[in-house]
Design a protein around this nucleic acid. Sequence first.
DNA 1: ATAAAATGCCTTTAGACAGCATGTC
DNA 2: CTAAAGGCATTTTAT
Length: 744
Amino acid sequence: MKLNKLKSYINAFLLGMVMSMKVDELKSLGVDERILRLLRERGIEELYPPQADALKTEVLKGKNLVLAIPTASGKTLVAEIVMINKILREGGKTVYLVPLKALAEEKYKEFKFWEKLGIRIAMTTGDYDSTEEWLGKYDIIIATSEKFDSLLRHKSPWIKDINLVIADEIHLLGSYDRGATLEMILAHLDDKAQILGLSATVGNAEEVAEWLNADLVMSEWRPVALRKGVFYHGELFWEDGSIERFPTQWDSLVIDALKKGKQALVFVNTRRSAEKEALLLAGKIQRFLTKPEERKLKQLADGLDTTPTNQKLKEALTKGVAFHHAGLGRTERSIIEDAFREGLIKVITATPTLSAGVNLPAYRVIIRDTKRYSNFGWVDIPVLEIQQMMGRAGRPKYDIEGQAIIIAKTEKPEDLMKRYVLGKPEKLFSMLSNEASFRSQVLALITNFGVGNFKELVNFLERTFYYHQRKNLEALEGKAKSIVYFLFENEFIDIDLNDQFMPLPLGIRTSQLYLDPVTAKKFKDAFEKLEKNPNPLGIFQLLASTPDMSSLRVKRKEQEDLLDYAYEMEEYLYQNIPYWEDYKFEKFLGETKTAKLLLDWINEVNDVKILETYEIDTGDLYRILELVDWLMYSLIELYKLFDPKPEVLDFLKKLHIRVKHGVREELLELITLPMIGRKRARALYNAGFKGIDDIVRAKASELLKVEGIGIGVIEKIYQHFGVELPTNEKKKKVKKGTLDEFFK
DNA sequence: ATAAAATGCCTTTAGACAGCATGTC
DNA sequence: CTAAAGGCATTTTAT
């Protein structure tokens, strides 16, 4: 039986009978010679035991496999060997699914290595796109789950060539917001392609493996030993029972790590804590820096923008500490990550951004908090997550062991030890039942995947993890019914006399745009008011009110002002202002705040000013703008389906560009130029260069006088018009001439 | 009388995927 | 049944 086989793998590990394996032995397992050669070239002579276990299953012969082993214990290498071998032997395409855009980039860089064998690798996320045909030329396609789900919906012709799907971090099946997407992708493909699931250690990996009809390899083995403990008032209780004494405060653990010449990573549960602890620690560890290190750190800090949060970051950074959370901009994040890897930054205090994202190991990991505030109040952080944080301890090649230490404050240290150190991680549960994900998936099944009636819908649902796990579709069927009714009632689909589903244009477009049907409905319902009174604030408020947009939180002290603002602007809004006792009230104020921010943005309010006014960080602003860009486009696309008025459509399109770039209408022309964003465009405009013509006719030397315009920018603009400036000689010449003259 | 310290009440709280067509300051 | 830290205003204490 399958189960016995599973058990045998597990037992083999437990008994310590699994030995490591030489790379050469892979040959007998059918691994292509060329792969072995490159592995050796990379310096890999021997495989880690779990890697060997994984490859000894029938995964190389095409059998599905779930590999549940700790982070950094070599899951990726297994994936690489399996997929490259498959491509070399059988051809076909591999899709490599990741949960984060940052991980897509990381894997892309890693897999580039295999281009030596002529293997073509592409990455596609919401940021970096590529036409569908273009992707057809590649052997390995790295994508986020959502992006790939979207590609599936678009029915690209190359989808049929996929014969291997690798789901990295497959335990995200259990993620409340995003698990359903991954689950549906796997349900779609499990009879068409081989599946390799890479998972953290979870409570019920067997269940996932059974669902996928896969072998299971589990192990706790790590290349760097991990030593875990709990710290309580100066006493460090190691899991083996030994006790080590330190000064009472937990920061002594950080200082101790530095004394050993090592780095530390501190996990906390709020951004504010991350910033506070970073600054506190900075004062205490500065003395460990060498002069050259201080100089380099100073340089890094000087290179950062001067936003309120960056001021604090700079202060910490010059002292060898950084904080890391989602409020930071992308530049800041990657600077910090790189500098920590180099060893320049000694300590990072981080929110969970670092527990699941890019791999950033440190000798000692300190977990200050094990509770977190959520929508449902104060909750214990799941064991799975804490263990992922702990898993960041120990740098391969640098450390013999890594240490992960949980700080006990009010909780009993023995409770923390039992729960997080010795305890088993939670089981994974299907999140298909999450209504928001499910309705979007039901729509896609009908509009994009040819599900023609309720019976077929239920048949498909029987392939899901949800069904496998519960063996009972009743609840899901009930939900599906109400969703189908919702879709029918709102003209996403039609249902004919024989109860057959018929996709309607609104449904098809909604699914392609990857919108929540509720968002699409909100848009549709607003079109009448929008035509009567098209205005930015009303539109922004509409976007902010959809479930696809995460609006800002409103602080107590802002409530009154925002309500006044809403009443002042009432005539522009497409919805009524709710009463304060209404449950929608707080949500409404958040939407209003978001809309007001966006209005400031398109009126060219300085970004730092925006950050200060709304008490948000760069990363938050960036995320809002990213969402609005997508939703604004979607709004326009849906409006096109409803007999659009040309002038309204034109208004929306202009507004889209304005919000994308954060400019007033008069800058729309300048903004089309390369390297010209809201700041430079405004500077040019104020200097009298109001349009493309002015730029073309202007002398380069004149343009250079404008703030923010350097020779590099001019060069890019000239290139845009097909004029090359190859040498420095010419650059000087250009300053005198105009772009216009080049055309003669 | 004035300033510092203590007290108490109130407020706040993690993260980040998606379209489409090419490039910010 | 459910946290903890920071901000702010008020009250108490010290000089």
